[in-house]
């Protein structure tokens, strides 16, 4: 029997490592650059910020960018916008990462379980539907009302708001994967359900998980902004991009720079994360290797 006709070209070169593969993508390089920029800003905030972010200077309030040592201008209390954006990176990144970890971590787990175990699906999925039927912000406000406004509350509240969406998307991906023959083949080999779930199903629903994580980060930063705007989020003494945007809204006609720069910071972070997330998803998919 000749099978020469079906042989793909034999490659002798060693497989490149995953990191090499990952960083051979332009989008990953650009994305990690932007993320690194933001993370460094957050870590080094104390040293690179030209002013104390909370130092009031009523005489210099609402100065436009470039005036009197204030590179990005000042806000309505004369606080330096650049310093507040730099310090805001700490709060916003930390809150964003914490919300993503919470929502995607628990959401993925619930999605896997509801998609794979019919017995718990009925109950858990109805609970998720119940959570989703609340308007997200109203639920978050109710929670902060009970627990008091703080960063922890914001993380818990927004985490619980976004978690069911992740769970539902992962569940639907699991429902597709669990019917594929390779899952059945694994049961035929004598594997337990737990093994199949984490060895075969989870890796094959990684793409939607990564996409959700990058989306949720952007939602989280904006959600934090909305909560801060309503006065139930991060207190204004602790600058975040969200509460800066919220304060800037009132002065949007007078002082556009107050809204523009925290907005740009959010945009750059989200862009960086999306570029990186897309590249990561592609690098994890063997089918797209080398493209």
């Amino acid at each position: 029997m000749s099978i020469a006709a079906e042989q793909p070209a034999v490659s002798t070169s060693r497989e490149p490592s995953f990191l090499v593969l990952l960083f051979s993508r332009g989008s990953v390089i650009a994305g990690s650059f932007l993320i690194a920029l933001m993370v460094l800003t957050a870590v080094l905030a104390h040293w690179i910020a030209p002013f104390d972010p909370n130092a009031l200077n009523i005489a210099n309030r609402l100065q436009p960018p470039g005036s009197a040592a204030h590179l990005l201008g000042t806000d309505e209390f004369g606080r330096d916008v650049l310093s507040r954006v730099i310090h805001g990176a700490r709060t916003s990144l930390a809150i964003g990462i914490a919300i993503v970890a919470f929502a995607v971590g628990i959401g993925t787990l619930i999605g896997l379980v509801t998609g794979f175990y019919n017995r718990v699906d009925m109950v858990l999925s109805r609970i998720m539907d119940g959570l989703m039927s609340f308007p997200g912000l109203v639920l978050a406000i109710a929670m902060t009302g009970v627990m008091g406004a703080s960063s922890t509350t914001v993380v818990l509240a927004l985490g619980i708001v976004y978690m069911p969406r992740v769970a539902r998307i992962i569940r639907s991906a699991v429902l597709v994967v669990r019917e594929l023959s390779y899952v059945e083949a694994c049961f035929a080999l004598g594997a337990t359900r737990f093994y199949v779930l984490f060895r075969h199903v989870l890796p094959n629903v990684m793409s939607p998980i990564i996409i959700q994580a990058t989306f949720i980060f952007s939602y989280a930063v904006l959600g934090e902004a909305a909560l801060s705007f309503l006065g139930v989020g991060v207190p204004p003494t602790q600058p975040s991009w969200g509460n800066m945007l919220a304060e800037a809204r009132t002065f949007i006609v007078l002082a556009w720079w107050m809204a523009l720069f925290p907005g740009l910071a959010i945009m750059i972070t989200v862009l960086g994360l999306n570029l990186f997330g897309d590249g990561l998803r592609d690098a994890l998919d063997p089918k797209l290797k080398g493209r």
């Binding site: 035929a188 080999l189 094959n204 998919d285 063997p286 089918k287």
Partner: peptide, 23 residues
């Protein structure tokens, strides 16, 4: 016991595209 017995009882699938884990 069934999981142990599965060594003896195997299956080949129809769709060769769905029967192997792509990852």
């Amino acid at each position: 016991d069934m999981r142990r017995l599965r060594q003896d009882l195997q299956i080949i699938f129809q769709d060769p595209y769905a029967s192997l884990d792509p990852r």
